[in-house]
């Protein structure tokens, strides 16, 4: 390899159209105008060279830096970990890397973004390169790139994706699950209970005379009722129950590992709490009631849709019998 290097460098020098002195000056000016921190250490990890980028981003004085151990110049560095990392570079003669995604920063340098991101310090990608000299042996060059922008936008993107994820599952008005997510959950719960031979019950419920309520008090009142009813029902549920808005004024609750009697019990409590809670709209007391249909998964159904049909039928029965009551398939 050394032969090959020699070949390249002699070649380069032979064809170099400028003097070595000029080359040195160009190199050092480039190094000092780079928007990247350059730090060179000797084999004992003492700082030998640092460029302007580091000088202006740290408040450190040259005489306290050059010739001093990197760990005394930058006491924030994780000493044991970095020692091992630097030794790897020296010993294996291979580059090593440290990305902001694993460690936000190594060096506590201020960043130039005016808007504060989640850290006071510049996010960094660091590269550790082995550098060999003829008479002074092995060195390590540390390149410190400012990636605060990348980090900032990546974090924003991540948060947006989480928010989108959430929005795609939630009904905007009532803040409970929307139809799509609720139905996906039912499909999962259905196959789970089939696979593990577990009980599964379903409640479908509908607000009584909701159209009339909208006509008499306006749609804003209707919206308020939907929100209040969702809150009331949510307060009666267990964490594992899956509550969603099925349609306009229709709601549905998946009850995993629940048998029919338990589901009827819960449906009755929902029926009572809604009938006895007075809702206030524009200082007017409004009373609403709900009709509920309950069904439990039996050996009959061959898909989850049939379970919906079962509870839907029970719901229509409750409506037909005069509303404000619970009916079940049994």
């Amino acid at each position: 390899m050394s032969d090959f290097n020699a070949l390249i460098s002699t070649k380069t020098i032979d064809i170099l159209p400028i003097s070595e002195q000029a080359l040195k000056q160009i190199n050092s000016q480039i190094a000092n105008q780079l928007n990247t921190g350059v730090l060179v250490l000797d084999a004992n990890f003492n700082v030998i060279i640092w460029n302007r980028f580091l000088q202006i981003h740290t408040d450190k004085v040259v005489k306290n830096t050059l010739g001093k151990s990197i760990f005394s110049v930058f006491p924030e560095l994780p000493e044991r970990w970095l020692t091992r990392k630097l030794s790897t570079v020296l010993q294996l003669n291979t580059p090593s890397f440290c990305s902001w995604e694993q460690r936000h920063h190594l060096f506590e340098l201020p960043h130039t973004r005016p808007i504060t991101t989640d850290s006071d310090f510049m996010a960094q990608n660091c590269t550790f390169l082995p550098v060999e000299t003829d008479c002074h042996g092995k060195h390590i060059c540390i390149l410190i790139e400012d990636v605060t922008d990348v980090c900032h936008y990546q974090t924003q993107l991540k948060n947006t994706l989480i928010e989108l994820e959430k929005i795609s599952r939630i009904d905007g008005l009532t803040q409970i699950y929307n139809r799509r997510h609720w139905q996906e959950s039912l499909e999962q719960e259905y196959s789970k209970s089939r696979r593990h031979d577990k009980k599964l019950s379903l409640i479908m419920l509908d607000l009584d005379y909701f159209k009339l309520l909208n006509d008499n008090y306006g749609h804003q009142c209707g919206d308020m009722v939907l929100i209040e009813v969702s809150t009331l029902i949510s307060s009666l549920l267990r964490v594992e129950d899956i509550f969603g808005r099925y349609g306009g004024e229709e709601f549905a609750i998946i009850l995993p590992e629940t048998e029919l009697s338990g589901a009827i019990d819960l449906a009755q409590r929902i029926c009572n709490i809604i009938a006895t809670t007075e809702l206030i709209y524009n200082e007017q007391a409004i009373n609403v009631t709900v009709s509920l249909g309950v069904a439990q998964l039996s050996t009959e159904e061959s898909n989850y849709e049939e379970l919906i049909t079962q509870s839907d039928n029970a719901l229509y029965q409750a409506k037909a019998l005069g509303r404000n009551q619970v009916c079940s398939t049994a």
């Binding site: 790897t88 294996l92 291979t94 090593s96 890397f97 694993q102 460690r103």
Partner: peptide, 12 residues
């Protein structure tokens, strides 16, 4: 972290 371990050994 586990991620960093994987990245380190891979790079080496």
């Amino acid at each position: 972290s586990q991620d960093e371990q994987l990245i380190d050994i891979s790079s080496i």
